[in-house]
Amino acid sequence: MKRKMIRGNILAYAVLVIISIIWLFPFVGLVLQSFRGEYGGMVNYLIPKQFSLDNYKFLFGPDCKFVRWYLNTLVIAVFVAIITTVVVICVSYALSRMRFKGRKLLMNSWLVLGMFPGFLTMICLYFLLKLLGLTQEGAVPGLILISVASSGMGYYVCKGYFDTIPKSLDEAAIIDGASRAQILWKMTIPLSKPIIIYTALVAFMAPWCDYIFASYVAFGFSDSYNVAVAMTRWVWTNDYQGYFTRFCAGGILVAIPVTALFMALQKYYVEGVTGGAVKG
């Protein structure tokens, strides 16, 4: 029995090591490429022939607005994270704890609305934003507005989590004379740390990947680009020869803080997602 267990464990370790290699390989490749000294695009070997910091120097040099793009993205991410969290908590609490006419209808229709191919409406959103002066120069607040405007539809996971908090707690508080607002503020929110962190974390991560819509809104005004818009140009258009290693370096700089944050809050992420996601 014991030997069988040990053999099983060795096998498990072997599988896990293989999995880890597969999962880490692209990241190792990215990091190594970012330090590559040789000129050029993609290469077919992993270890650079010469190491250098030139790619990073370029990003922070005078010829590149990388810092600007980075800050743009950071500002968007922070605001989106904060506002989205507030909105999602509000919506989730209302849908989980209150019973009102049209509640089911509302939930169903939001579920359905989420399925409409979003980019079909991109041109419409662009002109709505333009009406408010939030394109090109104003693309950063514009992107924040669009991201948070519909964030209420992402109530799913959070509502599921609220559903698991016993209703009897609420009832007891109501008997004690607390208003709903007080219950939300003083009881539900303190009990929901994981889901709040989860919501904020997911919202924070999304803007770093926003390419399609961001490029649509900020076009022709490079001061408003976010990192994804600015950097995908380097690999997708012919105008930027030899930018591939710079792209890798920029990618690493984007990945580090997001990954670090994610790792630090991983515990809450798991609690949040398992507490809520699965329950709809």
């Binding site: 050029g40 695009g41 993609m42 012919n238 020869q241 030899g242 930018y243 591939f244």
Partner: peptide, 8 residues
């Protein structure tokens, strides 16, 4: 047709 993407 892009030197930047040609590895070999």
């Amino acid at each position: 047709s892009s030197v930047g993407n040609a590895t070999n």
